[in-house]
Design a binder for these strands. Structure first.
Lengths: 208, 208
DNA sequence: TCCTCAAACTGAACTGAACTCAGGTTGATG
DNA sequence: CATCAACCTGAGTTCAGTTCAGTTTGAGGA
């Protein structure tokens, strides 16, 4: 008997799943989700349109997968960056820096995530799409909790004045991700400069 | 001869344009632009789907119009709120407060604007859509300049430390509009409370 | 070397929502 | 009360996303 594999988690040796995700991130990130034709992605990968349905249930399923992966990455990066820092201010700075230590492809992924965030609000009809949506939603809450908890710790330690930590966390996060609405790698301002400015803003905003 | 009217700016006595915009804001704001069927809007207004095309060239043309109107409103409100205040810090506070002094329908309009902002990036094929898009783009820049100029004035007066005013303006704006991603009138936190927190954040962020 | 079977793929047909067309209805105004 | 632009409609058309009914490919066991 040939190998018996579970369909979802891992991919066969000649799978084009990664290539599809990569092409989709580029198209969705540069041209926008609605604007790009699903068949364009197929062309880029070098397969027929219908072959896409071997890997993703729908165009939306692919988008939701991209969004979930990006959220997972963001959460992991934050955790890694802030894990071994006990000083709240330094942890905060490390968290901000981790948000801007990204490749061009990751920038596109975050653009895709931010531009289609509202998709996570309403349930999906198909099962696999809904699974991705729920997972993504949970990761959004996890990322929000990452920032909130950091602020709570800082307030408890007396490093930050006491304020509504949840609202403040959402605000900090909103400020950071808003960058991906206007930033372009071809622009005049280099990313490290933006990172520094935001880092300062966050520290001042939270402190006093 | 019957009255000779220009098509665009003003409306006939039995025009349903306003009713369509109102229904569209509700649907686009609550359910999302892509999710709502154009025919749902027609049903709500009480006309056939094809009658919509008497008022708007397309679903996207209606969306772009909503976005432009909201941008116009935001710009006007900011200008009115900050006009007669010479103290930079007070003007800044007044600007933030004006951003949160809104009705529920205006909240929906801002949600529509924020959720579909990326639509303004790429040119439209049809003429009327492109006109709205360009107008909206210019208004975005105008709103950005509103905040930037306020910061420049404050820095010149010595009220704020000198930083990159443009980037700081975009950041302030990004922080403010990020609220419309998570705020719901049914939520636990009342809007004035949010307004106060953001006001404080902006002042600390810009100050020293 | 060849056989097997799931993975990987395909062309043709289907679906549904946005939009077009070719007119019909309505009502303010001369 | 006749006119004509504003306003509206039902019957198509289009096109991107999707389904269907299979066919091809190639890694691993015999």
């Amino acid at each position: 008997m040939a190998r018996a594999r579970i369909v979802d988690p891992d991919q066969g040796p000649r799978s084009k799943r990664a290539a599809i995700l990569d092409a989709a991130v580029e198209y969705f990130g540069e041209t926008g989700y609605e604007t790009t034709k699903w068949s364009d992605v197929a062309d880029r990968v070098g397969i027929g349109q219908t072959a896409l349905y071997h890997y993703f249930e729908s165009k939306a399923h692919c988008l939701l997968t991209i969004m979930r992966l990006e959220l997972q990455r963001s959460h992991d990066m934050f955790t890694e960056a802030t894990a071994d820092t006990s000083d709240p201010v330094e942890a905060l700075r490390a968290g901000v820096r981790s948000a801007f230590a990204v490749s061009e492809q990751e920038i596109r992924q975050m653009r895709v995530l931010q531009a289609n965030m509202s998709l996570l609000a309403t349930p999906r009809k198909s099962k696999r799409e809904e699974t991705e949506r729920v997972a993504a939603r949970q990761l959004v809450q996890m990322v929000e909790r990452d920032w909130t908890n950091l602020l709570v710790r800082g307030m408890a330690k007396g490093a930050f004045p006491v304020r509504d930590a949840h609202m403040l966390g959402l605000t900090v996060l909103g400020m950071i991700v808003s960058v991906w609405r206007w930033y372009r790698p071809t622009g005049a301002i280099p990313l490290p400069e933006i990172s520094d400015l935001i880092e300062g803003c966050v520290v001042r905003m939270v402190g006093e």
